[in-house]
Design a protein around this nucleic acid. Structure first.
Lengths: 96, 96
DNA sequence: ACAGTAGTTAAATAGTTATTGAACTAATGA
DNA sequence: TCATTAGTTCAATAACTATTTAACTACTGT
């Protein structure tokens, strides 16, 4: 389901589900600490996750509205969507 | 596993898992809006959840450190553990 | 055109989670 | 003592989730 079509509580559930996994928490922390966008490959390498598993987790984060994607040729760059964090869990990123 | 024995990230995962459910979100909101402790029965009734299902959700929240329990004879009173919220997701309760 | 790079998708599998109903414990009050 | 109240536990079930491997798409540089 598209996040914009969800009720607020459904969005909250999607966000908490997305963060309720050690690998995705690690991905979020990596993106937060790097301060700027990173390619999928860079993130996957730093978090020691296989390509396909990383892709799965990236999708979960993106579908929860926690990240955004920029495409440049064959490379995709991921960035935290701070709007979503600020709206639903303000202050969380600073606890990482 | 006991929450105190978990790594910080394991605690985060337990907390996000606990909040990644519409029924438990409703329970947390009910407890937050009531401002004071409530009996299990009161919460279950307001959230329209069966006794046994409510008990299951109460345990999940308690094991994540999100609530505390006070026993008085046959009644148990639940309260939000604001320490945990403040430590891991400061500001979250005010978004409810 | 072709080998290499970057990432997605699909199928299979194992493990986890939410819900229900019935049986249970423990305290209350007539 | 006995019925009632408050909540827990257990077993069964259905649905969902994370991981792996292999096959795939699409773009790049020679």
């Amino acid at each position: 389901m598209i996040i914009e079509q969800m009720s607020i509580d459904e969005q909250r559930v999607a966000i908490f589900k997305a963060l309720a996994d050690p690998t995705r928490l690690q991905i979020v922390r990596t993106l937060y600490q790097n301060k700027k966008e990173m390619s999928c490959g860079e993130v996957g390498e730093q978090c020691e996750v296989s390509k396909s598993n990383a892709s799965y987790h990236f999708r979960t984060l993106r579908e929860a509205g926690l990240t955004t994607l920029r495409k440049d040729a064959q490379t995709k760059y991921i960035q935290l969507n701070t709007e979503t964090f600020d709206k639903y869990i303000p202050g969380f990123l600073d606890t990482l």
